[in-house]
Design a protein around this nucleic acid. Structure first.
Lengths: 193, 193
DNA sequence: GCTATTCTGGACTATATAGTCCAATACTCC
DNA sequence: GGAGTATTGGACTATATAGTCCAGAATAGC
């Protein structure tokens, strides 16, 4: 042990994630990241090892933060359709209010990452997979409770909802109109009937 | 009149669009665009007026190219559900084959553009609106033919399908697995029943 | 062929960028 | 308090970038 860090690695990563989320990877410079975290270049490079590594870690961090908060909403003791309706309504609220106008970080990364960046795409894929798994779990339980049709394909539903939310949030970035988004959500939820 | 251009403006724009689509806006340099088009910087700047303008014009060009090809598929003399199934199947094929792995140019732009770039976002919004209008038109006609339920909300359906396709193509970029994509599409199409 | 006019190659500028490096610093353990 | 060690600030490098500029080239009209 010797001189201790003057910053909290977790907080710094949070700030990095936030900036990459808002501005995008390519449009964010290392100087920007230093400014956002208050770290010097040395500390940033020593701790995280460069811009690209920060992206990968930010993606993972986003997933770790986002998955439980989604799971919490779906764990409410209400019918699964209501639970998803609440989740989607929250997305709409955030988009309309402005805070959700930067889209989903995973979605932004998926769109911006070059096709050849397999490592980064794998992180994003894993993140989407985590969401999908949470959805599936909620759907399986709901099916066991008899809330879904017996022939309902919970795998397919989970995948559809995952993609649907990406579409919703993407459209919301460009067209943050409540009526439009509510149309999308209402139609989406009909798959649960 | 004097010295004529040595290149075709339309072809050059096409090549620009292609590169911006594949690589993204921020990751593409003006030198890259010169190389892709074969134009010198002078010609590029004189003709199009800089990188940002090229983006806006590329978005418009993409919409002009894409909308009719979608409309053509939906104009086939088959039930609207089959027509949409064919459209979505084509997207899946392109994704799985690889050519569709770069996503939708509009979607990529929506994701990458900063929230504050209102002009560019407006071009993207208009592009999505064109797709939505084509969808709506096909749905309205189908409804008149009695293919949809009398209470079907064609506006909402068109919006939902527009967003759903964005979600599908985004997910496809990260996870180009036919089974996953077919699950998404199958569930999506149920809104037309 | 001559001239006016537009186009083209590529040099040029000023700035931004990712990443490296080291001396100075601040702390812990003994 | 001394020695060892990890951290920090910030200078530094080499390269890339968006956009400007102009001299020379190529053409149409006469």
């Amino acid at each position: 042990m010797a001189r201790p860090r003057e910053f909290d690695e977790d907080i710094a990563l949070e700030q990095v994630m936030d900036l990459l989320w808002t501005r995008g990877y390519e449009a964010t410079s290392v100087d920007d990241l230093c400014a956002a975290t208050g770290l010097s270049r040395s500390s940033l490079y020593a701790t995280f090892g460069g811009k690209r590594n920060l992206l990968l870690r930010s993606v993972d961090r986003y997933v770790e933060r986002r998955t439980p908060s989604i799971a919490a909403i779906l764990a409410r003791p209400v019918p699964v359709r209501e639970a998803f309706a609440a989740l989607l309504a929250e997305f709409i609220d955030q988009i309309v209010a402005g805070s959700g106008r930067r889209g989903c970080f995973l979605g932004n990364c998926a769109a911006e990452l070059p096709r050849g960046d397999r490592a980064a795409l794998a992180h994003v894929r894993q993140g989407l997979g985590r969401t999908e798994a949470v959805f599936r779990e909620a759907l399986v339980q709901a099916k066991a409770r008899g809330e879904l049709q017996p022939k309902a394909d919970t795998d397919a539903l989970a995948r559809f909802l995952t993609a649907g939310i990406q579409g919703l949030r993407l459209v919301g970035k460009v067209n943050p109109d409540r009526g439009t988004l509510e149309d999308i959500v209402a139609t989406m939820l009909r798959c649960l009937d």
